[in-house]
Nucleic acid binder design. Sequence first.
RNA 1: GGGCGGAUGGCGGAACUGGCAGACGCGCUGGACUCAAAAUCCAGUGAUGGCAACAUCGUGAGGGUUCGACCCCCUCUCCGCCCACCA
Length: 1084
Amino acid sequence: MDGRYNPGEIEPKWQAKWEEQGAFLAHDDSEKPKYYCLIEFPYPSGQGLHIGHIRSNTAMDIIARKRRMEGFDVLYPIGWDAFGLPTENYAIKTGIHPREVTRQNTDNFRRQLKRIGFSFDWSREINTTDPGYFKWTQWIFLQMLKKGLAYKAKMLINWCPSCKIGLANEEVIDGKCERCGSEAEKREKEQWMLAITKYAERLHDDLDTVDYLEKIKIQQRNWIGRSEGAIVKFRISNFEFRNRSNSDVDWIATSKTPRNDEEYIEVFTTRVDTLFGCTYVVVAPEHALIRGQITVNREQGTDDFSHPSVLNTGQLPSGRGAGSGEQGTDDFSHPSPRKAEELPSGRGAGSGEQIVGSGEQGTSLRQGYGMAKQGTANGEQIVGGMEPGVGIKNWEEVRAYIDETKKKSEMDRTAEGREKTGVRLEGIMAVNPINGEEVPVFVADYVLGDYGTGAVMAVPAHDTRDFAFAKKYDLPIRNVIMPHLIDKKNPPREGKKSVERNTIHALVKNPKDGKFLCLEWKNHPWITFIVGGVEEGEDVVEAAKREVLEETGFSNLEYVETLGGKVQSEYFAAHKDENRIANTTAVVFELRDETREPVTEEEAAKHSILWLSLDEIRNREMTCAELDFWLARLEGNEGVFIDDGILTDSGTFSGLSSSEAREKISAKLESEGNGKKVVKYKLRDWVFSRQRYWGEPIPVVHCEKCGIVALPESALPLELPEIDGGYSPTDTGESPLAKIASWVNTTCPTCGGPASRETDTMPNWAGSSWYFLRYIDPRNDSALADPEKLKRYMPVDWYNGGMEHTTLHLLYSRFWNKFLYDIGVAPTSEPYQKRTSHGLILAEGGVKMSKSKGNVINPDDIVSDFGADTLRIYEMFMGPFDQPIAWGENGLVGSRRFLERVWKLQEKLTTHNSSATSPCADPLAKTSGQPTKIDRLLHRTIVKVSEDIEAMRFNTAVSSMMILVNALEKEPSISNEAFGIFLRLLSPFSPHIAEECWAELGNTESIFLTEWPVADPVMLVEDTVKIVVSVNGKVRDTFEASVEATEDDLKAKALASDKVAKFLDGREPKRVIIIPGKLVNVVV
RNA sequence: GGGCGGAUGGCGGAACUGGCAGACGCGCUGGACUCAAAAUCCAGUGAUGGCAACAUCGUGAGGGUUCGACCCCCUCUCCGCCCACCA
């Protein structure tokens, strides 16, 4: 060692050596077990490497380096997710070819990453824009097309009328075009779709087989949105057929359902237990019943119930002529894309895409439309059928409503407090199959056309949305679920008989002072409202009035309201010596005057009258289990009870719990052909088209004769044509590719006739959906990757990335991998064994770093000023890895000082630079003799650092190394062995300084070829421990004790303490709690 | 509205499974070195009271469980992220 720590000198030196030695290459033929570390490959933006990239890359670099030292052959690859909007926009602005921009940016990123000293296998670098790469992206698309997972459908896209281009969702800010600020519109366009919904169940269930952070699993599950429920068929009465004749298809013949004059609305519900409370039915504006339009490409393949979501008569053959007989027959409990040969047709609307602003950090896996926006139109083509509004008498009004809905922007539909609107369909009624009751039918936009069946049974008593709608349109509210309570004060007693009764609580208010009439019982310590039973067939209000009169004599009451539905409570009725199951209705009255009739002596003997204000009721011990419900409802929290409970007024199902009732009611419906249990997913198919230049061309042509024809695999890669100048999309919203006639016009691979190329390109999620496979065999020209190599490396053992990618990217890539697994390409069903996430690095002040704010930190500056090792260790030390953290320069100084101190430790080495052989071959070499304090600390540090790395607690790992260095500094001398062990612990964090010091120790071999230190158990055993003595839980003293000290020893020693004696103050300890090895607590 | 996460000194953050709150780092204060400064080193650093030993208080607020609570339970406030009329 010569003098000062100079990272500017040693860092490039070691980087060059490692590269020269191929130190971090993965070996396909290695004997060692493999370990595949993956980070999300960056989008090479013009802004250069973000400080956040360094944090996540360093974390995985630490794991990769540790794994190598643990004897694994590690694959830690890197590449570029280089298709994407910023590059394209830059090209539009400057006219520079995106390929050139990409080249410059990747060069810069590569240079920056290499300066940090990451142990990437650079020989496997990939780039999604490289034809040798996207050849296989296109190939996968063709396989999906073959298996019927890729299809075309009409979709709404965001459209800027001023810029005349389609906008990705992230380009629409608050409903406006990001660039020009004009209001974005929706425009219908035919789009390529990928049927990810066919994999919904497996994507959901297989999460059980992988080791992802729980929060990631939760997000994935929520996104997939599995819900169990039931389809219920409501027959439409008064339905009038019209206009069958003008259909150009024989829909009757192709309709799978036996035709009769009954038509149905099918609703999806998760709460079939509330079916008796249904007082109307609502269909979405998009629903076929009111569109009255027959559509194709609807639903098929995405639903797992036996009937389509619209009128049975609406069924028509799909556009491909496959016949709608197929429709609905797919059973997706075991989806097998291998079998799915038909083009599944467009269930058009997609789910809400969320673009999660990841800033420039994290990775580029961030663009595109993602899954389609919710609430957009179904991909439908009108081919004939009924005329609009069949059977609907107020069709004009209905159509006006629908038109209005269409005009509403996405914003309006979700903003403005979401007041519910709708129109009743006059002339038709729906029949509730469980009780034969006719209920009205509405169209309302609070029902979504693309979820479930596009129709709901409305149960206002038990659904807040239905409730709001029912209130507004004055529809009946029927309570059929009772909350269930057990009275805690008088719980039911075992062995007593149970009696179920309908009861009332009368809440009688005196308008003079606002107080309520209560009863104070004489033989029991009770205060109650006026309580009583409801006679068979008696009206609850009448019953309540009667009870008030009988018990108190007040006779002139005005009925105010009934407080929601019944509440069931179980309690022990001491005055009757029996358990009661009381189904209680609360009725509110006001006194018109204080007229009182005489009360029988018997009643008068039982209780006396008490007037209590609401506050008193709340504070006094009322004997009323239902009190909380009554108070809430009195205060205007209307009686919508949305939880599970006990059924009431539900025919033979009354008395069942909600969950029992769901089973039994759906079983009954199914046995009668009126419904069945189903599972639904919120997940929508993936909109896969972009009207952009800088993406993978979709490798199909449109032939006048043959329709959509896939390119043969031999024609791949289909490369982008050169464009002079304009990379802007066309005025029509088509991709810029559409402008290049020489490229568009081609011949059909099937018939040789004229054909035009598809001009849409793929979203840049495409390239990132399978890149982890390509790393394994990145130069293979004849296959996506060699199957043997795939088998060696897959699955990815550890994949770390940002939470912003847990829904879209993670789901897309799992989907593609599963598809590739199904067609025999990928060796594992799940691509990633383990997934963790990092927190973002924010700018100082906790805001996002952005060019416009001028608060972007350039890693080059930090490396120049402090060194890569300092930057790395600081980013690990600054805070918990999984939490967002604000950047601050302050801590950097401390990290640099730490490395300086490490450097200086070399001066204390006992055998400085004296040996050419490796003095630290065996990490446990020096465990003989009496372990010193330093030995023990060293070995504890080995344990701490090892464990912390595995748990990604890098901050505390660094802290424990600092503690060790602080202690080593105080030693007069340090053994080479001890220092060597420490260097190995440090090496994954700050590899250059560790390697340099290691070489200075006289080692000729890289520190990364040594083994990861293992702690000697002997060194971890302490012979004395510090025992804390507390009195009443407050620490008063401590003492050293042997680890073998018995409880009695500890107790005696603790009680002998002067300080304890002082706090005992002569009193005898009541109790002494002894936790061996830790503390003694004296209780007085 | 729903889900997830968070709140600890002047600051970033520690605290295993309920057992000495504030590790480690930054900053600050004092000292050493220096003509001086930087760098480095040493000591101190939660608040309050006290010359001090020491005592009391203290982990967003309020309750509870416990011998003992940053940690578990209940209620609430605030912050972040994600989703959001999903039947």
